[in-house]
Design a protein around this nucleic acid. Structure first.
Length: 497
RNA sequence: GGUCUCGUGGCCGAGUGGCUAGGCAGUGGUCUGCAAAACCAUGUACAGCGGUUCGAAUCCGCUCGAGACCUCCA
């Protein structure tokens, strides 16, 4: 029996502002769309947080035995740097700066994106469509919106008529904006004479002669508006109405608002049942952004090569750090916080590895099944990974207590504990770290392990002979090399730091 | 300027109308040849000021502070 029949998952829906019990359109199946990156630059850590957040969602839905189709796009069509009618698109600009073909830029940063997300142990999405691969679909949507009388052609471009749409529908339902307020607060942007109203947004833009990325359309040579691709690709692969649409908080307005309007205009249906927004990762209290340069690149974390960092951190530690905060909260990045996460993470991993060697008893002093359900409860409550991690630390404490012979577990409970911890740590949180190599078959590691064991033996003999100079020398020099010895009851263990 | 969100102990970060979040750091103890690790114990935390309530850090109002969006951004 699939797990989702036993667990009640609640998801915070940005549309309603409340946690709602999750009910997919088709029982047992989930369609999820997440806005992917514009590939004109390296992904920074803030970008990664969003994708790690939705990887967590993807993983947990799968863990509940849902069949999930996860679609995440690549924005590779050139969109303008702002909402003005003229200007250079970001990919073309980057191509000029790097002296590359626009599609080389796209390829280069798509590869970077994939590599980094893989390093963070994200699952790839089920489908990863590109904007340029769906120009035809986008044109079809523009046509149908025009047919509905909700878009107009102006000088070779097509704009969505927000005021007209707002006569029968509500533009602004997601972001809580009112059209009247938007009108009152419109910024003065030059060159918007093509639009009937400043709130209108482009579905299709006429390409200026210097614009490199261009396609033919019923309205002339041009390129699609930014918001359109997500509507085209989400509905193509997930249907006119699907379950979950995610993205960064900064996309809520106008991007997602426009998607809702476009979708409704084109199909007459509200495209998405659950809107989810991941919050920002901040650096020095401010949002990380490509445009301001206030960001850290993942590779800088892995190498420690950044003025904000005192050392390097593994991808698993960085991921664990992010998952210790809830996806809807702003998380501030700092070296200190990463260090704390790293220590806690290692404690958790070491305890997990200890389970097999735990002494077993006839009875357990702890309810393992209750703890497991608490882990489900945490994730069922809008994917609350920090609470889940807190429970995993409770398990850590239990394991260490059993090891210290201050608590007890039956053999079957120890097995259960290992099973569900493994599921939550590796399958759900997606944390993956090279485990202690003492129990692997890799030959070099086996040799090193044997070497350390030999030194431990020598040290144990020295200690028996009260030759503490020798024993301390072995311990201290190993520690200098990054090998820590740990004396436990009757046995010395080691760990590579 | 408009809309919205947030403000938790030394740091990070959950949560909630009354019952220990958790991690890191600190302190005391156990263990140890000494340490480390581990275990046990330990913090009068919820920006400020009012209000609602038997009871609020949690609800309401105001003040102060921070951030996001309103232009491309995850």
């Amino acid at each position: 029996m699939p797990k989702y029949q036993h667990q009640e998952l609640k998801i915070y829906n940005s549309l309603s502002g409340e946690k709602e019990t999750f009910q997919p359109v088709t029982p047992g199946m989930v369609g999820m769309y997440v806005c992917g990156p514009t590939v004109y630059n390296k992904v920074h850590l803030g970008n990664c947080r969003t994708f790690i957040s939705f990887d967590l969602v993807f993983r947990y839905l799968k863990h509940l035995d849902y069949k999930v189709r996860y679609v995440r796009n690549i924005t590779d069509a050139g969109h303008l740097e702002n909402d003005a009618e003229e200007g250079e698109d970001r990919i073309a600009k980057k191509a000029r700066l790097e002296s590359l073909e626009p599609m080389e830029i796209v390829q280069k940063y798509t590869v970077d994106f994939h590599t980094i997300l893989h390093t963070f142990n994200n699952f790839p999405p089920s489908i990863e469509p590109t904007a340029t691969g769906h120009i035809v679909e986008q044109i079809e949507i523009v046509k149908s919106i025009i047919d509905q009388g909700l878009a107009y052609v102006s000088n070779g471009s097509v704009y969505f008529d927000v005021l007209k749409y707002n006569e029968t529908e509500k533009y602004g339902i997601l972001s809580g904006r009112k059209v009247e307020e938007l009108i009152a607060n419109t910024r003065d942007l030059t060159g918007q004479t093509e639009k009937k109203n400043p709130q209108d947004f482009a579905l299709w833009k006429k390409a200026e002669p210097q614009h490199i990325m261009r396609w033919p359309s019923p309205w002339g040579i041009g390129f699609p508006g930014w918001h359109l691709e997500c509507t085209a690709m989400s509905t193509k692969y997930l249907g006119d109405e699907f379950d979950i649409h995610g993205g960064g908080m900064d996309l809520k307005f106008p991007h997602h608002e426009c998607e809702i309007a476009q979708g409704k205009a084109a199909t007459g249906k509200d495209p998405v049942n659950y809107w989810m927004h991941a919050n920002m990762l901040t650096l020095n209290g401010k949002k990380m952004a490509k445009s301001t340069g206030n960001n850290i690149l993942p590779e800088e974390i892995f190498t420690g090569n950044n003025p904000n960092l005192s050392k390097a951190y593994s991808p698993a530690v960085a991921r664990f750090f992010m998952l210790q905060a809830h996806y809807r909260s702003v998380l501030d990045f700092s070296d200190e916080a990463l260090q704390a996460a790293e220590k806690g993470f290692h404690r958790l991993m070491e305890a997990f590895q200890t389970i097999d060697s735990l002494p077993t008893s006839n009875s357990s002093s702890f309810d393992v099944e209750e703890l497991e359900q608490k882990c489900f409860d945490a994730m069922n409550d809008d994917f609350n990974s920090p609470i889940l991690i807190a429970h995993l630390f409770d398990a850590t404490k239990l394991i260490n207590s059993v090891k210290a012979e201050k608590a007890s577990l039956t053999q079957s409970d120890a097995k259960k504990l290992k099973q569900f911890m493994s599921e939550f740590i590796f399958d759900v949180l997606g944390i993956h770290e090279n485990l202690s190599f003492s129990n692997t078959d890799n030959s070099d590691e086996t040799k090193l392990s044997g070497l350390v064991e030999m030194l431990i033996e020598l040290r144990t003999k020295a200690r028996e002979n009260k030759d503490f100079d020798t024993s301390d020398q072995i311990r201290d020099q190993l520690l200098d090399m990054g090998i820590e010895l740990k004396d436990t009851k009757g046995k010395t263990e080691f760990k590579i730091k």
